[in-house]
Design a protein around this nucleic acid. Sequence first.
RNA 1: GGAGAGGUGCCGGAGUGGUCGAUCGGGCUUGACUCGAAAUCAAGUGUACUCUUACGGGUACCGUGGGUUCGAAUCCCACCCUCUCCGCCA
Length: 426
Amino acid sequence: MLQVKRIREDKKTIVNGLRKRNWTARQIKILDDILKADDERRALQKQVDDLLAENKRLSAQIGQLMAQGKRDEAEQLKSQVATQKESIRQLEERSEAVKQHLESLLYTVPNCPHRSVPKGKSTEDNKVFRDWAKPFPTLPPDALAHWDLAKKYNLFDFELGVKLTGAGFPVYRGKGAKLQRALIQFFLEENIKAGYEEILPPHLVNEDTARGTGQLPDKEGQMYVCERDGLYLIPTAEVPVTNLLRDVIVPEKDLPVAYTAYTPCFRREAGAWGAHVRGLNRVHQFDKVEIVRIEHPDRSYKALMEMVRHVQRLMGKLELPYRILLLCGGDMGFTSAKTFDFEVWSGAQQRWLEVSSVSNFETFQSYRLQLRYRDADGKIHLAHTLNGSALALPRIVAALLENNQTPEGIRIPKALHKYTGFKMIS
RNA sequence: GGAGAGGUGCCGGAGUGGUCGAUCGGGCUUGACUCGAAAUCAAGUGUACUCUUACGGGUACCGUGGGUUCGAAUCCCACCCUCUCCGCCA
């Protein structure tokens, strides 16, 4: 959520940002509605506060009069206070309504893209930040897609998943299962080496937590809900891990905070279409290792690049062809100020698959989380939050299987050998 | 699931209707003393919203939400959470 203060003080920047997100002049008018609602809120607040102060003063007087035994005077004041109480109640009601209106308006405004974010309407306008310079692996014309390879080598089974749960819940088995475990282990170890503290959080969260990272109130439909207990299955480790610092004021010297976490991710995911969602390309439950950082605003963009480089190293070690995209305003997530996407080349599907998204949210998340730091002067400021996948498994697995298929079997990249215990799937 | 105890500031812990945003102790910060440290002494030490050019004010917050009252941390109701014991269980 954007701060009203920022809209008031730096409206021009916000307007430009929203244009980058292809907001029309008419849509942008909402900023004026927000400022108007905020003016109203402040005026009402002043009125209420003044009346409350007056009442407080009178009540103290009543106490004194009672102590002095001046009952009649006290009674007189009592009725005066009682009258005011009614007008306070009415004002408070209005004030509450205005606040809610203001908040509902704010919820509709996405984060303001960083000035380096390119304009653009869709995925086609994303800038290739770093392309794959080397040739793609050459596969025989009869190369199999990962879903066929999975059948051939008995790595995972979608039908069994349907039997147990439903579509989009694969059952991994044998070397397929072990490959999952190896990847998770590999990612975690690499992240820990890079200075991230490992967190193993709960996989279900309460409403406050879901609200903290913005899953609620809008994106309720994308999560699985345990209604009876008021709990939500996490769509990403970002949710519990970022919330670790909800309502916390971190001393400046403790920044940056860096976490990594493996969790399964649960996504209800509305749309499903054609071959693009076949196999592991899109599932309801998948495994992901996430990295999260809490940064000083002055160095959050430096941190973003550090995270990008870190993910690059992971991709390199996996020996997979990849490219990095700088997302354009139109393709960026609602909460992000700047996002880099990592895509891996799938040789058999002949297309790029998104495997990681690394973003700086600036204060968009921390405002709602009330995640702040205290500087050397004791002043309190919102921290910047960043996160990225390092990495999401399914499409990595898809690319790994497809690109590395040989007549003898599927070759496992060297970096994984010590975790898999095997060098080939055959 | 049953019984009991309890939820107050960074921590411990007072406070059972009026001047309590909250005694006190610890911690932390600053200053004094010291070559330095410890000890000691002194001062300071919540957050949000809001008014003011500023100095400095105002309001709210004692688990959450309601209620009683001129006035609530304090009384009443509901809910949530934590701890102890019992039951069940990996």
